[in-house]
Amino acid sequence: MESVIPILEFKKTCVSYTKQTMAVKYVSAAIERNTITAIMGPSGCGKSTLLRAVNLMHSLYQNIRVDGEILLNGENILSMEPIDVRRRVGMVFQRPAPFPTMSIYDNVLSGFSLNGIKLSKAEKDTTVEHCLKSVALWDEVKDVLNKKGTFLSGGQQQRLCIARALAMKPDVLLMDEPTSALDPIATKHIEELLLDLQKEVTILIVTHNMGQAKRISSKSMFMYLGELVEYGDTETMFTNPIDERTKAYLTGKMG
């Protein structure tokens, strides 16, 4: 039997904000390539903290410790340069955060400019068009590419942020409750988009919304008080959860 290296693997990953308390406790899980994996759990269970460990966001803050291993294509990212990791692991935040001083066009290309990578005008044009098409934003903005990114609606801004992350051709896309600040229609657009995008990129999405996890993810993690309680096929987890805590959360008795 051929062993396939998972695209992303947590091995006894721990994150602690202070010496006494751990926000994420010994999480081990292997993420499958080209899937959408949802991370669910009540507020404060450590799901965003786990997600932010993957692109080394925690290294920006003193006092936060990440222990264990996180393997990206078999390589431990905790011993890699943050800049190299972040080029391969994109991130989309809860609130749409297009760069306010940049045009829509420059926002899509901001990953290149922030990395000091120079592109020719033709390369720029094709990248912008391709990325905006893959987030289904091209038709809406192709005539206003020089307007500021903040000129768009919330849902469009979030799609712009996804396009900006995709432009760097990441292996993994991390999404931290990307639709919680959006209305239902914009949310639906994003969800359809993600289902499409999983062909190109592996998506790890933190969500508060159980319905969303059920609609888009093929694998789900349930976290509680920093522990990974259950990890498996979304369908199985929703119909037949193994752990009592998962069951209590999914049936609304807890959370």
């Binding site: 692109n55 966001m57 920006l60 943050p82 800049i83 190299d84 972040r86 080029r87 994109g90 991130m91 935040f93 955060a97 760069f99 306010p100 901001s110 990953g111 922030l114 990395n115 942020c161 900006r164 992350a165 760097m168």
Partner: peptide
């Protein structure tokens, strides 16, 4: 804003 910039590898 800063995190978004750094998350892109800048």
């Amino acid at each position: 804003l800063k995190e978004a910039g750094l998350a892109l590898g800048g």
